[in-house]
Amino acid sequence: MPSLIDMRRRIRAVKSTQQITKAMKMVAASKLRRAQERVIATRPFAGQARQVLASIASRVDPAAHPLLARRAGTETGATLLIAISADRGLCGSFNTNVIKTVGSVLRENTERPISLGLVGRKSRDFLGRRGVPVRFDYVNLPKVITYAEAEAIANPAVSDFIEGKVDSVHLIYNEFKSVIAQKVVVEQLLPFVPEPVAEGQGPRTAEYLFEPSPERILDVLLQRLVVAQVLRALLESNAAFFAAQMTAMDAATRNSREMMDSLTLYMNKLRQAAITREIIEVVSGSQVS
C-alpha cells in the first residue's frame, strides 16, 4: 500500500503537469486567433484573382494553358501527393489523420505511380519510410508562414507537372473547420481547377487592353493562383494545428483534474484508515492496562 507521502508526491506531479497543459492551451488559443486572421487575409487575393481569370477566359482559351490542361492521365496517371503535417506533436490526432489519409490513398491507388512531397517533420518522419519515392520534403516551417514558403513547395510540383513527370498534383492537409473540428481534405492542385466566381460577381464585360499579352497575363495569374492555393493550405493547416492542440491540451487539463480528484480521495481514505487504526491501537492499549 502506498504511503501518504507517496500519494502527496503523485498529486503534486499531476498538478505540475496540469499547469503545463493549461499554459499550452492558453498559448495555442492566442496563436490560433492570429492564425485564423491570416487564413481570412488570403481571401481578397483569391477572390480578385478569380474574377480576373474569369474575364481573361472570355479572351483566351484557358484550357490551352499547361497548368489548366487536363490530360489522359489526370485520373489514372502518375501523381504527386503533397502531405502537410505539423513539425510538432501534442495536438491530438492532427498529424495521425494526415498520415492515415495518405496511407489509404496509397492503398487505393496501387496501380498509379505515386510520389510524395512531405511538409512538416511528422509527415516526413512517418511517410518517408514507407518505400514510396519522396520527391521533396520541407521541415521546420517558420512561425510566420509567407509566400516564400508556399513558393518553395509549389515550385517542384509545378515543374514536375509541366515537364510531364506527373499528370496531377494533390494536397492533403487539415482544414480548419472550427475550434473543435478539423477535417483532412484531399484537394487537387494541378491541373488547376478555377473555383467558380461567386453569384453576382460574374466576369466583367469590359474590353481590356493587355500589357504585354493576354497569354502572358494568364500565365502570371495562374502561377500566382497555384502558389496562393498552397499558401492557403499551409495557413489552414497551421490554424487547424493550434485548434487541435488547444482541444488536446484542454482535454489533458481536464483529465489531470479528474486524476487529482481521485488521487485526493484515495489519499483521504488512506489517512482515515491510518487514523482509525491509531485510535483502535490507543483504545485497545488503554483497555489492556
Binding site: I56, L209, E211, P212
Partner: peptide
C-alpha cells in the same frame, strides 16, 4: 511598375490588365 514600363492611372482610364 508595368512589365513594359511604369504607367500612371487617372480616373477614367481604359480597362487594362497589366503584368
Amino acid at each position: 511598375p508595368g512589365e513594359e514600363g511604369a504607367f500612371g492611372v487617372l480616373p477614367g482610364h481604359a480597362p487594362l490588365l497589366a503584368a
